[in-house]
């Protein structure tokens, strides 16, 4: 007699569990649709004509010609993409190199005033770029860097060094100290220890840092908008808005341009997901 209530309870449990699971699964699927559908719609609209976008927004394109993509490419996307590539890669190299360098100093050498320097560099993370904006405009102007790729490379590097140093330093702190010691016994110089031993060991976090930096620099808008004015210097996020202003009535081309600009970073994410996630966890979790 005592067995039966328990077994009914488990049946009930099972029922509720199954129901809950189904509910959760369908919820997750719906959410995935909400996330993916607009993006898919954007890419597909790039294949449509303007009239089709307005009149049959939900339909599939009638043809799969790349006309709009080609037109968008020639309308300026090519030069925006080039600028984005230049600025992103140059600032990524500068940021990660300087940060790794700094992280090494902060984690593995004994320099005077280390707590102060650490606080100064890592404290930069808390400072909002918006606050520095107005003085930076004049500074860039007086340095003659306004409306050049250099302005963006410099600023992206400066504003990302704190975070990137923070990531790499945390990783370096976890590396055992006897590594350097052993190398020193063998007569290696500090420089050799950094380049030959520590840096290779930090490869995973370096990759994560590079990816996070690329994600940042590729999408950055505030600085890019303020510090560039000529079309051949503008990066994708700013270029897209000016494309929108100039060809705003040709929706299909704007969608094509948006798709072209989003594609590289989405592909990078799927290819390097592991490193992305590592960077994110290290960045927030430590």
């Amino acid at each position: 007699m005592t067995v039966s209530p328990i077994s009914t309870q488990t049946d009930g449990d099972r029922f509720w569990n199954a129901l809950g699971k189904t509910f959760i699964l369908s919820f997750l699927v719906c959410l995935a649709i909400v996330v993916i559908y607009p993006l898919l719609w954007m890419a597909l609209s790039g294949f449509k004509t303007n009239a089709q976008i307005f009149n049959e927004p939900f339909a599939f394109p009638r043809s799969w010609g790349f006309d709009n993509y080609v037109a968008a490419w020639n309308q300026g996307v090519r030069s925006f993409l080039f600028s984005s590539l230049v600025v992103t890669s140059a600032s990524a190299v500068c940021t990660v190199l300087i940060s790794a360098w700094t992280a090494y100093g902060l984690s593995r050498s004994r320099m005077p005033g280390k707590p102060l320097i650490t606080a100064m560099i890592l404290g930069g993370m808390m400072l909002s770029p918006t606050v520095a904006l107005i003085p930076l405009v004049r500074m860039m102007q007086s340095l003659g860097l306004y409306n050049t790729h250099w302005a963006l490379i410099l600023l992206y590097t400066a504003f990302r060094i704190p975070f990137t140093t923070f990531l790499i330093r945390a990783y370096m702190l976890d590396l055992p100290a006897d590594l350097d010691e052993a190398a020193r016994m063998d007569g290696a110089s500090e420089g050799q220890i950094f380049w030959r031993i520590i840096l290779p060991l930090c490869a995973p976090i370096i990759v994560s840092s590079v990816i996070l930096h690329v994600l940042f620099a590729w999408n950055e808008y505030l600085f890019a908008m303020i510090f560039t004015s000529a079309q051949d210097v503008q990066t994708l996020p700013v270029g897209l808005t000016s494309l929108m202003a100039k060809h705003g009535t040709n929706y299909a081309q704007v969608f094509a341009a948006m798709t072209i600009s989003a594609m590289p970073i989405v592909l990078l994410f799927f290819a390097m997901q592991k490193y992305f996630i590592r960077g994110l966890t290290e960045g927030i979790g430590k």
Binding site: S99, A132, P135, L154
Partner: peptide
């Protein structure tokens, strides 16, 4: 040697100082 090891951070201190701290104070 201790002072020499400052070479690791001097670039970051300069860049961060010049492009983050100075403008924010200047603001």
């Amino acid at each position: 040697i201790r002072a020499l090891s400052l070479r690791w951070v001097v670039l970051a201190v300069l860049v961060v100082g010049a492009f983050i701290y100075v403008p924010i104070i200047d603001n």
